[in-house]
């Protein structure tokens, strides 16, 4: 079987490895496609629905992060319909939490904020839910502000897949879903947390943050992820 495929993205011919996802190819060719739950190095879950693309003119949308390339595939990453859906998704994220950029620790370093700017989301017609959410600042180094959490579950995955601690998980369902440490106990009492801080580095918003840092120091640093993933795979192959 051939180990490479050729396909078209936005009318342009590109090549890809058989096991590549559409998103990998898109990123390789510097085509802009918004994502919030995806992060290179962690398993893909297709939850944020921002990377939905049209394939072969079908009206059924597929998320690029979990869809494997196929020979002769024709992918459209951007059109009016997709833009409209993406803007609505961002609007939904803004109204379900309490996102106030002006007083947020991640102001200027927030992926949600960047995408909203980039996609032109400057107001919403949706109904603000103003939920009553809490902050867990019990840990001496880190804190979580659930008001800013968008449930991308990156923290859950990095903790389980990279650090191997599985401190984080999701509890509740629907609009009441939220991330919890261990069995929904306070962060400082977690016996599994190794305080590695990876969850803070992968968080796309200001939900997870380091305490006592000025806003200018809030730039996220997650360059380590692809290396850790590679190391993990090398280890697996050695065994």
């Amino acid at each position: 079987m051939s180990s490479v495929k050729t396909l078209k993205i936005n009318g342009k011919d590109v090549s890809a490895r058989t096991d590549d996802t559409i998103l990998q190819v898109i990123r390789e060719h510097d085509i802009f496609l918004p994502t919030l739950c995806h992060i290179e190095g962690l398993s893909a879950v297709g939850a944020c629905r921002l990377c939905l693309v049209e394939i072969n003119g079908s009206s059924k949308l597929r998320s690029a992060c979990v869809t494997q390339v196929e020979e002769g595939m024709e992918v459209v990453t951007d059109n009016e319909r997709l833009q409209k859906y993406r803007r609505m998704i961002l609007e939904m994220l803004f109204v379900e939490g309490n996102h106030v950029c002006a007083v947020c620790v991640a102001n200027g370093y927030c992926e949600l904020q960047w995408l909203a700017e980039r996609l032109g989301v400057d107001h919403t017609r949706l109904i603000y839910l103003h939920p009553d959410k809490h902050v867990d600042a019990s840990h001496y180094r880190y804190a979580i502000d659930h008001n800013r959490c968008i449930l991308c579950a990156r923290c859950v995955r990095v903790c389980g897949e990279i650090e191997g601690a599985h401190t984080w998980d999701v509890a509740g369902r629907g609009i009441n879903a939220h991330v919890v440490t261990d069995l929904n106990t306070s962060w400082d009492s977690s016996p599994t947390c190794t305080e590695c801080g990876k969850c803070v580095q992968v968080c796309p918003t200001g939900a997870l943050f380091k305490k006592s840092r000025a806003i200018g120091e809030m730039a996220k640093d997650n360059h380590f992820l692809p290396y850790l993933k590679t190391m993990r795979e090398v280890n697996k192959n050695d065994r």
Binding site: V45, G46, A47, C48, R49, M88, I89, M92, L93, V95, E96, L126, I127, L129, I150, L151, A153, V170, G172, R173, G174, I175, N176, A177
Partner: peptide, 22 residues
Amino acid sequence: NMDESCGKCIPCRVGTIQMVEL
């Protein structure tokens, strides 16, 4: 449907509650 949404993806998690409110 709102009560039974698992909350994993945004359109269902927030879309259903928006429709209920409307």
